[in-house]
Write a protein that binds this DNA or RNA. Structure first.
Lengths: 339, 339
DNA sequence: ATGTATCACGAAAACGGTTTCGTGTTAATA
DNA sequence: TATTAACACGAAACCGTTTTCGTGATACAT
C-alpha cells in the first residue's frame, strides 16, 4: 500500500522548501528551469496529486454541488440528475445527491449537512411536505449565508433565487387542446392537490383550454389525489364512475394505469378513449399502446440548472439578481391519441 | 448576508482562546462550567456549525462516499443509489454520484477526481467498456492507496475488494426452469455479449436449466446483442425468424419490447408465448400484460454495499480480508406467464 | 513557609495546500 | 569598486479545526 504523497514529502526528498515545490508544480516563473524539471519529474514519478480537501479549505471552494430532490426512482428526477451531472462534470464539479423522500425534515437535515462547507451551491426541487407546509426557513438560512441556490420544477415564490421550470400550465393546455381538436368531449384530469406547484399549474392549463372551448369545466371530471404516490383504488373508482373519452394525467404512472383500466373495460385506445401523461419516461415509450406525453425535458432542465448555479458560484460580483428560466414543454405524440 | 461564524470569531468576541472555544463546545471537562455556558450560548445564538472541510482535513475522513455507475436512468441503478443513499445518510455519510456512461475513460477520470481526498471509499459497478477492455488499473491504483472499494453487480475477479452481486446464474436458472415446468418447449434468451459479467452468468443459468431438462440448448434461440442499449431491429429480426413459446430477457426493456412484437403478430400472452425479464422496475409492473421478472433487489444491494464500505472505512484494523456477498434473486410472478 | 495537586485555560503544532513577502546570491551597471 | 536589479528560493501566514502539552493561579497538605 503506497500512501498518497504530499508536497512536504517531495520537499523533504528533494531538499527544497514546500513553497518551492508548490510553485514548481505550477510552473511558476519564480523557479529555475532546473528545479522545476526536477520537481515535476519527481512528482510524476510518484504520481503526486494535490489533496482536494486542502485546496477546498484554502480556496473556500469545494467544487461540489449539492442536489436535494424528493425521489430518485422517478424518471423525471433521474434525467435531471443526469443533466446536472454531465454539465457539472464538464466544468470540474462533482454532484452530491441527497434524497428528501418527500419529507420536510429530511430536506432540512440534508441541507444542513451540506451547508457547512461541503458544497458551493444547491440545486433542488422541493419535497411535497415542504410545499404543503409552506415553511422555507431552511432555504432562507442558506441563501442568507450567501450560498447560491437554484430551484427547479417544484419551486416557491417565497425564496429569492434562480429558478428553472417548464411551463406546466402551457403543457397541460396543449394537451387538453389536442384532445378538444380531436373531438373529445369528456376530458378528465387526474392530478394531485394544489399545494404541489406543478400540479396547480397543470390544472390551470387544463381549465384554460376547456374554458376557451365550448366544453367548459366539469369539476367531477377532475381527480385530485393527495400525493404523487400511486393510489389504484381512487383512480379505479374515478374511472368507473363516469363516461370519459380522454384523460390527462399529471404523470406517466397514473396514465399507464388508467389506460389499463380502460382496456379492461373493453375500451379501445385511442378510438374510444385517449390518454396523455406528463413525463417522457420509459413507461410511456414502452407502454401498450405507447403513451403520448408532455415532455418536461428533464435533462435539459438539469443542464440549465447546473449552468445557472455554477455561473453564480464562479461570478465575482455580488449582484443579487435572480432569474427564472421557463422551458417549453413539447408534446410527444404516440399511440394513445390519434396521430 | 450573515456569513458563517468560526471558532476564531467566537474566541475574539468572548476574549478567550480558540482552543477554549473548541473544548467548551465539546463539553470538555477541562473547561469551567461558566465558560462553557457562555461559549455554548454564544454559539447557539449565532448558529455556529463547524466547517466540514476543516474537519475533513484534520481527520482525514470526509464522510463522503463516491458512487460510480454506468448510468442512472436504468431503474436498477436508481434503486441501488437509493439504497446506498438511505443507508449512508443514516450513518452520517453523503453520496457523491458520478456517471461513467459506459465509458472507460469517464470511469477513470471520475475515479481520479474523487480519489484525491474527496471521498472515503468507492461503491461502483463497472462500465461495459471497462469490462470489455478488461483494464482495471484505475481500480488497482485506488485500492493500493488504501481506499476501500465495493464492487456491485458488474464486478471483476481481477480486483481484490468487497463485492455484492445477486446470483444471476440462479435467477436465469429459476426463470428458465419455470418456463420448462409450464410446458414451454422453445425457450429463447435475449441477452448481451459475454463480456458483461451479469450477462454471462445469466446465460449460464439458462443453459444449465435447459441441459437438465430434455430440451437441450439450441444456439439459434440465443440472441446476443452488443450492449444493453435497445436494438429494435435485431430483436425484431430474431423474434420473426422462428417459432418461440417463451422468452427470457436480460432486462425489462428487451422483454417489454419483445412482448409487444409478439402481440403485434397476434400471439396471446402467456398462452402462446410467455415472457420473463430481469429487473423489477416500473416498466414490468405497468406493462400490459404485467411482466414476470427476476428481481435483483437493487435497494437491498445498495444498502449492503454501503454497509460493507462504511464498516471497512471505519474499521481500525488493516486486515485485508474481502468478502463477496451473493444476494438471492426472486421471481416476481405477473401476468406474462401462467400463475 | 514550602511543596504539590488540581483547575482552567492558552500556545502551538498539525492536517495539505497557496501565496505574500523577505533575503541571500549573482550579475550588470555606474 | 560600490550600487542596484534580477533571480531563485525560503519563511511564514492563512484556511478552520482538533489536540497535546505547558503554565499560572489557587487550594491543600506538610
Amino acid at each position: 500500500m503506497k500512501a498518497k504523497i504530499t508536497l512536504k514529502d517531495i520537499a523533504r526528498e528533494l531538499e527544497v522548501s514546500i513553497s518551492t515545490v508548490s510553485k514548481a508544480l505550477k510552473n511558476s516563473e519564480e523557479i529555475s528551469r532546473d528545479t522545476k524539471e526536477k520537481v515535476q519529474a519527481f512528482a510524476k514519478l510518484y504520481n503526486y496529486k494535490p489533496n482536494n480537501i486542502a485546496i477546498s479549505l484554502k480556496n473556500k471552494r469545494t467544487k461540489n454541488i449539492g442536489v436535494v430532490i424528493p425521489d430518485i426512482v422517478h424518471h423525471f428526477f433521474t434525467t435531471v440528475i443526469r443533466g446536472i451531472e454531465k454539465y457539472a462534470n464538464a466544468r470540474g464539479y462533482n454532484v452530491i445527491v441527497c434524497l428528501s423522500e418527500e419529507s420536510f425534515d429530511k430536506e432540512v437535515i440534508n441541507m444542513e449537512m451540506l451547508a457547512n462547507g461541503s458544497i458551493d451551491g444547491f440545486i433542488m426541487s422541493l419535497s411535497s411536505e415542504t410545499q404543503e407546509k409552506g415553511d422555507y426557513n431552511h432555504l432562507k438560512e442558506v441563501t442568507e449565508q450567501g450560498i447560491p441556490v437554484v430551484l427547479f420544477d417544484r419551486i416557491t415564490n417565497e425564496i429569492d433565487c434562480d429558478k428553472v421550470i417548464i411551463d406546466d400550465e402551457l403543457g397541460a393546455y396543449m394537451a387538453t387542446k389536442k384532445f378538444i381538436e380531436q373531438g373529445k368531449k369528456n376530458i378528465a384530469l387526474i392530478t394531485t392537490d394544489d399545494y404541489l406547484s406543478v400540479s396547480k399549474a397543470r390544472t390551470m392549463g387544463y381549465i384554460r383550454a376547456l374554458e376557451e372551448s365550448d366544453l367548459g369545466v366539469d369539476e367531477r371530471k377532475v381527480l385530485k389525489l393527495p400525493s404523487m404516490e400511486m393510489d389504484e383504488k381512487s383512480i379505479k373508482k374515478f374511472m368507473d364512475s363516469q363516461e370519459l373519452d380522454a384523460v390527462l394525467c399529471v404523470n406517466e404512472i397514473f396514465a399507464v394505469y388508467s389506460m389499463r383500466l380502460a382496456q379492461q373495460k373493453g375500451l379501445k385506445i385511442p378510438e374510444d378513449i385517449s390518454f396523455i401523461g406528463f413525463t417522457d419516461g420509459l413507461l410511456s415509450k414502452y407502454a401498450n399502446p405507447s403513451l403520448t406525453v408532455v415532455s418536461q425535458h428533464g435533462e435539459k432542465m438539469g443542464e440549465v440548472s447546473a449552468k445557472m448555479l455554477i455561473d453564480k458560484v464562479e461570478s465575482e460580483e455580488e449582484e443579487e439578481t435572480y432569474q427564472t428560466k421557463i422551458l417549453e414543454p413539447t408534446l410527444v405524440i404516440r399511440d394513445s391519441i390519434f396521430h
